[in-house]
Design a protein around this nucleic acid. Structure first.
Lengths: 343, 343
DNA sequence: CTGAAAGCGCTTACAG
DNA sequence: CTGAAAGCGCTTACAG
């Protein structure tokens, strides 16, 4: 519990002041309000800062400023590593962009019994100023509590329960699905069926609507070609097989997730057909699996999402607007008719 | 840059002291050295702490103690989300267990040009006391630098360049592979071939050795059945196909990773055979894909790894020992001869 | 067993 | 333009 070696060796603002022959608040001014300091003084101080390798102590700044410039990021043991869970990638992008906002991220896990306990804890100790909230869901108690408590936060995923809140970033699954339909039709698949999640999940319903949007703008009229499956490979394979029977050995299957698409590819092969050349298949999330299996998929713009999150967190609340970002269609063999077969 | 609302509203140690009618250092003693405080005083203070919802300000503690009780965790944009990258899961386990060690984690990304810059930065500002270093590799400059600088750290992955260092946690791929061979032989696959990475990667060579270990203890003598492939599905599929030709339509393929195993399953199916009932296939890492595709795989004990990491970080350096943990074989259809087919 | 004092390293009005 | 003063919230010897 004693001081670390690094702490003992670090130069402080007083060391810099002494070396530069000024008072310590002048050094502070060079750091925080350089326009107040005469150029020669400023240069001399900066030189000493570099020479001594000085960097302001974060704890001292936090204490004095009464803000942590840090945000909590909840990681969920039961979701990490699951296919289509893109929150890890989002964390990376947030981490990469954090220094540009003089901020950093602190990870934490939620209590099973009390979802809000972890949030209260981090806030109560002043470790963070606010949160990045992922995996938003129906009946999520977090947004309402955070708003009530006046805690800054941004949600990754629309705040479905509280449509009045504007502090979220999300991927436009609907637009993505529309793009995918257009791509499939342009590739010459005569019809586009949909393999989605059961009605009732916000993201799922949104994606399904995108499929309908895509069909609406075309001559292909196949809105009846739809099957549902939960996020499970075997169930998805069965659902896709049912769909295939009704498709008559031609057309494409647009899926609400990469896992469902995996099921679709499996069903296609089980029917003696080839994904791509015979039946088009498209997934969503561009998981590692999609890349490995040559599955066309929609990639979430996580970098842009992170940038938008910081804008919402640090921008003027008055000019704040939610960010709905379009995913990018990554075209691979599974949706290409004239594909070159790899060896 | 002004104080947060939360900061303005938080109770301080002085508020508690006033409410309990004691001095503020008595409150501090109740928190840090309760045995010094008389029971009635202690109870009164504790009551007020609860009533006021007081929690000590972390920044003030850090400043005073001259230690952050925080550790930096580098996230790597080019590796996150890749199949077999289990560092995300490790971060979750570390995060879950951190509060038990009065610690928290701060994420950061490394500079492309200067690998150490991020480490220097976090340390120089006193934001962290040390690091958890993942993705160790040959020629990794980080361990040597950290040791030289006297910075506490633990590596996830053996420190291959500096065998004298004992501050690492790793998964015993060799033992895992041996277990897998034994399982495959016990299942009745007459031979066990190996699909590994090219010789020269530390983890890969270790796993290959485990395969040989497993064969050594058996009557099956198939150490010549080996093929190599880089971490790429198509290459792996080709390599597995070559292996299959030499196996004569029977036996099992043990793979150094789930991705290689995916290639093996693919090659098996391309040969008109079925993984499991005809040819056993086992991977390593127990990725989401392994679960989805019913692939038997070795699961890394990430929870135990996190516990061991904290022990190395916070334990007595004299009694410190590296932790080499055995993975668990998760048996699924791909290595089961008498399998029940799911619908 | 309890409290007065010093100090961790910084920032921010404010006086000169 | 520069510096003396106060204070952020806590902990730790130390005196009583």
């Amino acid at each position: 519990m004693s001081a670390t070696k690094a702490a003992r060796e670090r130069a402080t603002i007083v060391d810099v002041a002494r070396a530069a022959g000024v008072s310590r608040q002048t050094v502070s001014n060079v750091l925080n309000r350089p326009e107040l300091v005469a150029a020669p003084t400023r240069d001399r101080v900066r030189q000493e800062i570099v020479r001594l390798g000085f960097a302001p102590n974060v704890a001292a700044q936090q204490l004095r400023r009464r803000r942590a410039s840090a945000y909590g990021f909840e990681v969920n043991p039961s979701l990490v590593g699951k296919m289509g869970h893109i929150l890890d990638g989002f964390l990376v992008e947030l981490t990469t962009t954090a220094p540009g906002h003089q901020s950093h991220l602190v990870t934490f896990t939620a209590d099973r019994d009390d979802v809000l306990a972890g949030y209260r804890q981090l806030l109560g100790t002043g470790l963070v100023d606010g949160f990045i909230v992922g995996d938003t869901r129906y009946g999520d108690p977090r947004p309402a509590w955070l708003v009530e408590s006046g805690v800054p936060f941004v949600a990754f995923g629309r705040i479905w329960d509280l449509p009045a809140l504007d502090q979220w970033v999300d991927v436009d699954g609907r637009a993505g699905m529309r793009t995918a339909v257009e791509h499939l039709l342009a590739e010459g698949y005569g019809s586009v069926a949909f393999l989605g999640w059961p009605v009732g999940s916000p993201a799922g319903d949104d994606r399904r609507q995108g499929w309908l949007d895509g069909l609406a703008g075309s001559t292909a009229d196949t809105p009846s070609l739809v099957e549902e499956s939960v996020q499970d490979l075997n169930r998805a394979t069965c659902a896709a097989a049912r769909l295939l029977e009704r498709m008559g050995g031609a057309g494409a299957i647009l899926c609400a997730s990469d896992l469902l698409a995996l099921g679709a590819m499996r069903a296609v092969r089980a029917a003696g057909l080839e994904p791509g050349s015979d039946i088009g298949v498209v997934g969503m999330d561009d998981s590692d699996v999609a890349e490995a299996l040559e599955l066309t998929s929609l990639r979430q713009p996580l970098r842009e999402a992170a940038v938008a999150a910081w804008r919402i967190l640090h921008g003027d609340p008055k000019g704040r607007a939610p960010a709905l970002l379009a995913p990018t269609l990554i075209i691979r063999n599974s949706s290409t008719r004239s594909q070159e077969k790899k060896p």
